[in-house]
Amino acid sequence: MVDFIADKWQDILFRSYQHVSLVVQSVLLATIIAIALAVLVTQIPRLRSAANMISAIGLTIPSLALLGLLVPLVGIGTLPPVIAVTFYATLPILRNAVVGLSGVSPTLLESAKGMGMGSLTRFRRVQLPMAWPVIMAGLRVSTQMSMGVAAIAAYVLGPGLGTYIFTGLAQIGGANALNYALVGTFGVVILALLLDAVLLLVSRLTTSKGIRV
């Protein structure tokens, strides 16, 4: 095991980097999409139930099935994992962003209006900062989930540590099968925990001082 890791150190680091990079970029994209959708939902309250339904149905679709549907459309390689990870990552953030943004007290928004803020300024300086801790909580859930989805995406030749898990599976009975599977699985778990710690820190630092606990 130690020999295996020492031997493959470069490759493990590179794949870890790919894995985190795929997840971080997809989650960033997902955050933008989710906040934009959530703003739409808070403007038009009738869409709220529809948004909840879409996120419930979306999270039910198994990742292997979604990848299966994507391959004929966009081929194999990096694109299907990016689309799949972004798709799943959007849903928890959307759910939390709707709760967070619509949870902002209307009296606060009205006083902001009274202070002469336009609707964009109100969103940027009052509504978004108030909802931020809840949105960040959704983002953390999304990131944890995305680490697992990204591992599965290796099945369609996506990048990252999932490749090690599938190599382990393909070589079962061989000398290195266990090493590959262990490094792949625990690598993802360790990266997920590290990423979550970073996000917790980011969440603390980006939460406006007045509402920190």
Partner: peptide, 11 residues
């Protein structure tokens, strides 16, 4: 929850 299920199955 972050442990990839496919890794668990293979292990």
């Amino acid at each position: 929850q972050a442990a990839p299920v496919i890794g668990l199955i293979v292990l």
